[in-house]
Amino acid sequence: MRARTVPPLLFAALLVASCGPTARTDQAAPARDTTAVAAAAGDTSGAGLTLLPIEANGVLAIVRDGRAKATVVNVWASWCAPCRDEFPELREAVQARAADGVRLVLVSADFDEQLPDARKFLATSGVHDTTYLKHDADQRFIDTLNPAWSGSIPATFVYDAAGRRVAFREGRGTRAWFDTAITQALGPGAGHRSPS
């Protein structure tokens, strides 16, 4: 992984390397502009993909930033079978309503040594945007996102434009569940575009 010195790769490595225990939310603000330019289409290693360290408060700052009509937050891990299983349906559901202002925020719960697998999974799944890596104490992360969450993954949180959580589930989601949750988050008046 350290064999090449392509600048974006170095950038990603530095980001990961600099995420000591003191990493704060402001550091993990959405860095959409730094979206892995290196992750050219066809690169399935995902070596250039950025996973920004983030705390639960950083996740909430994103969902409340007013830049989307609805935000779907999904906590996953590369080795988690139900996470991988639901992934295509999750992405399809969000993409079907992207024109309505729905966005997906992916937060990996992988350990550092599993990051190559996480990047590979994202790349082979066609994700080339910046995603996130949980960097927070488990209990605080869980309870900040939803006290009713047991800590089991996958976990999906769906927020409306104001950042209010309108839907939550732990365990594998289905296309129907994601569609319904997104429709709820968009609220009345946004239903003219029927998800299919």
């Binding site: 589930r169 129907a176 429709t183």
Partner: peptide, 20 residues
């Protein structure tokens, strides 16, 4: 209410795991 309003095949809301 949710089912009546959106006539969706599944209802989202709070689908947390088993209660310990």
């Amino acid at each position: 209410l949710g089912l009546a309003m959106v006539a969706a095949p599944a209802f989202a809301q709070d689908d947390s795991g088993p209660k310990p």
